[in-house]
Amino acid sequence: MLRLALSRSARPAGRLTALSARAPLARSLCAAKPETGAPSSTTEGEPAGPSAAQEPQPDRITELEERLVELDEQLKAKHDQLLRALAEADNTRRRAAIDVENASKFAVGNFAKDLLDVADNLGRAMDAVPVEMRESEDHQDLKILFEGVRMTDTELLKVFAKHGLTKVDPLGEKFDPNYHNAMFEAPDPSKEPGTVMHVTSPGYKLHDRCLRAAGVGVVQKPSS
């Protein structure tokens, strides 16, 4: 009876020893066996690339293109504004230069216009002396006075010319309303109608500007 009990108690221990000896072999077999049915993370022959979430979206590309077009239009508008500003600055500079030039040329206009009465009076004084007395030895005082007035008038005209003021005597010229002031009309068959036949008062120009129009008489157009 004792032997039977010992033999029964020894059998489970032997089985445990055999199972423990088989465990390493089973583990090695499991490690060596490839897994079947598991999907591969990458496909053979295809390089790994960025995920779909990292690729640019079509809507984003369209938005960037529209923004680029908008910026290009803004650049063109700014360029046009710059050209206009430069042109305006150049025009302003030219107008300022013209204004400065005119101010320099016509600064003496008012003063010269006041002196025209002096020139007119000198001319009237010379016209008051009869032609036959201007060179007569019998009227020495009048002759000397006439020469003095004539020299004064000549010197005054030189000063006028020095500052751009010139005398206009349009006798025999065609009537020009820009420089002539018609005082009367009279028929004259020997002259063409519209011709200045008489000058009542000379005109004056300051450079190319009429300072005072000449008072003239014009040949009248014959009535049909």
Rank of each mutant, 00 (worst) to 15 (best):
T166V: 06
P170H: 01
E155K: 03
P58E: 04
L206W: 10
R60T: 06
A128W: 04
M151L: 15
G123M: 00
D120L: 15
S51M: 04
D188S: 00
F146T: 01
E88F: 13
A48S: 11
L82H: 07
G172R: 02
S224L: 04
R93I: 05
I61Q: 15
R209N: 05
P202R: 09
D99V: 10
N178G: 14
K174P: 05
N110R: 09
A89L: 03
L25P: 10
S224K: 15
S20N: 13
D114L: 06
E137H: 08
D141S: 06
N181E: 14
L156I: 02
S104I: 10
A31F: 08
V108C: 11
V199Q: 01
E132Y: 01
Q220D: 00
S104D: 02
D169H: 07
L25T: 12
L116V: 01
V159Y: 15
P47V: 12
E44H: 14
Q220C: 00
R209W: 06
N181K: 03
S41T: 14
T42V: 13
R212C: 01
L25E: 06
L75I: 11
L211S: 09
A186C: 08
P222K: 00
E46F: 11
A125D: 08
K33I: 04
D90Y: 05
V108D: 05
E132S: 02
S136K: 00
G109P: 15
M1Q: 15
L157R: 06
L25R: 10
L75D: 06
G164Q: 03
P58W: 06
L64D: 07
P24L: 01
D120M: 10
P39E: 08
Q220R: 02
V218H: 00
F184Q: 00
K205G: 03
D141R: 02
K162Y: 04
D169T: 09
I144R: 09
R67D: 09
A10E: 11
L6Y: 04
T43C: 12
V196R: 00
P202M: 10
A89C: 01
F146C: 06
R150N: 09
A89N: 04
Q140W: 10
M133N: 14
L4A: 07
A23V: 14
V219Q: 00
L19G: 02
N102C: 12
Q220A: 04
P130V: 02
L64T: 09
I98H: 12
G123F: 00
M197T: 06
Q57H: 12
N181S: 14
A53L: 07
T43D: 08
R60D: 11
L25W: 14
T166D: 13
P24A: 06
A214H: 07
A23Y: 10
V218W: 00
K221V: 14
N91Y: 11
R209T: 15
L115G: 04
D138M: 12
G109A: 06
E66I: 08
P50E: 10
C210Y: 09
E46L: 15
A112E: 07
V216P: 02
L86M: 11
F184C: 05
R60N: 15
Q74A: 09
R95A: 03
E155W: 11
D120E: 03
F184W: 01
L211H: 04
F160H: 03
S7L: 13
H198W: 04
T152A: 03
A214T: 05
A13S: 12
D99N: 14
S224G: 11
F146A: 01
